[in-house]
Design a protein around this nucleic acid. Sequence first.
DNA 1: CTGAAATCCGCAAACGGTTCCAAGCCCATC
DNA 2: GATGGGCTTGGAACCGTTTGCGGATTTCAG
Lengths: 356, 356
Amino acid sequence: MCTLCVIGNASNDCYAHLVPPHTRVNMADVARRAGVSMATASRALSNHPHVAAETRARVLAAAEQLSYVISPEASRLAGGATDRVAVVVPHIARWFFATLLEGLESVLREADLDVLLYHVGDEADRRDFFQRLPARRKVDAVVVLGMPVRDGERARLELMGVHIVAAGGQVENYPYVSIDDAAAGRQAVDHLIFLGHRRIGMIAAVDPAEPGWPANPGRTRAYEQALADAGLPADPALAVTVPWGGLPGADAMSRLLGLREPPTAVYAHSDEVAFGAIRTLRRAGLRIPGDMSIVGIDDHPMAELAELTTVAQPVRDQGVLAGRVVLALLAGEPTAGGVTVPTRLVIRGSTAPPRR
Amino acid sequence: MCTLCVIGNASNDCYAHLVPPHTRVNMADVARRAGVSMATASRALSNHPHVAAETRARVLAAAEQLSYVISPEASRLAGGATDRVAVVVPHIARWFFATLLEGLESVLREADLDVLLYHVGDEADRRDFFQRLPARRKVDAVVVLGMPVRDGERARLELMGVHIVAAGGQVENYPYVSIDDAAAGRQAVDHLIFLGHRRIGMIAAVDPAEPGWPANPGRTRAYEQALADAGLPADPALAVTVPWGGLPGADAMSRLLGLREPPTAVYAHSDEVAFGAIRTLRRAGLRIPGDMSIVGIDDHPMAELAELTTVAQPVRDQGVLAGRVVLALLAGEPTAGGVTVPTRLVIRGSTAPPRR
DNA sequence: CTGAAATCCGCAAACGGTTCCAAGCCCATC
DNA sequence: GATGGGCTTGGAACCGTTTGCGGATTTCAG
């Protein structure tokens, strides 16, 4: 049955009772109807202790009957929380960030917190965001998704005076949740080494919107380290860095194929980049994994369709965990400094021992 | 130079002057410093007319020096707008919706409007959203992205008393921006027919979160109509409907291949579904387009990498246009009832004349 | 130089809640 | 049977802006 319904309508699609917006009812109306003071009404509605159960019920009933909704502005102004959290993302449309966001939103929504979305893409956006702090005074917490934050920017952020949480990124100054990039990279490269590859290429990706920044350091270091640990020579020509994306990935693979002595396997920093690489191989008439093995990171949904071996990371979960951290912070509970979620190698059809 | 800077710091990375959050300055402080009343300060800050230029400048200067930020709550409470718009999406992480959102966010952000994100996925979410109207009293407008809205739900939405805009979907009751699905479908199917295919399959997709709803009617009708117009027989076995997604797409193609007389070409309602179909074909050892042509709709970024022929729709643009409509509505300008953006066939390597 | 019109500006009343403080009440304890 | 203490409840002071209204000042034609 419709929870707001006055007339006991049994249908869930009861829309009859809701008053039109110009008939704004406020807490005073509710209080009057319940025969209590506003103070009591306020306490009853916001679940404060020290309100007689019977009184609370009466207030709640009155509120329902009037289909009263609290004014968030007034509430906040008078000292309450905003019940809003800002989410800052460098890319909205990329699978990784969108999925992170989806997980985060779900737990925030469940806790009745509103999500304010801030897209901070290129350098201009950053400057604007951290300088103007458009979220200032508007939120109880801010979550930074998959995005490095510079020292100066951190200083600004902190001036907002709210909780800060990081997820899916390389920020460790705040409570964070992310994977261990170095470990993930090792899983990928070690797999290739285990298969017997000795000449392994790497396609590293940098954010096209932030060309100045280095590619993911953990994933890069993992490659170098794995090679070193296996006693394999490090050939700088085998490591190519391109902007993030499928097409650049395709280019990168072209460069690798143009080498006098191309690799027999390639480790890509991300699945999307790997997909591009695959296209180049297919166009070149090369077989995967026969002529070339390739492994990515992420386990993008398309990886399964492309039969791509990859290192899976629980993206949505990271968002969910970040949301829980926010909730804990808001509740004043102590939280662990950071959470690292595990990754795992998913072997599909794109990797095999090198042809001898 | 830093726009907030009091001390004339030439660097853009000047963070020194911002006061910590506990030193909250309010408009009274600004007014005092500028030597005017709060009323004048308010008018100056919100760009009202009838404020002497010199006075305004003085107020603005005072505000800068104190690094004052207006309290949105108080402002709203006293009668201003919320400067927030709710965006309702059925899926956050899918490319189509995320891209729409990205476009929308960019123009809203530019207009200094905040974006409140509401994920309304399955039936339970819908019920909750439309019943509780969690966005009520919180926004100046709501944008519904790529999502049908039932009549009863519309009634609820309208009770919010704010502007409503639809984008990327099949809603025509509000100002909307979308493609012509029927036309897009025709472009895809007509292309196959033009190539000489006479036995054409269709993979229609329904939202897995809303299994009760039909697949996109425009795209379905386009298929039937195109066949009819070309004088081709309509074989019901050739039209299979599956939940949206790559894996279901793969299943669908399996079913099509299991037919006594399989099609020579397949029209998929969306690229993602087509990708799944492609995997099945590849696993079956069939060649594309040699043994089977396939065309999708969307021009997903991956389509280029998969060499998929598809009907491109300007997704981001639809979001941008929807944002402009919101702005116009908020400004009180009259707006056209709806905008239909064009689609175009992008021929890649997945289609060719049937083998004879 | 004068008077009216056009601008500017300040006062104070909302806007819709939250919460401190104190008063009223009931009940158990001494 | 009085006293003390714990729940409940109401009164009222904010929270930080916007804005209608009226007074003050400037502008400009006559």
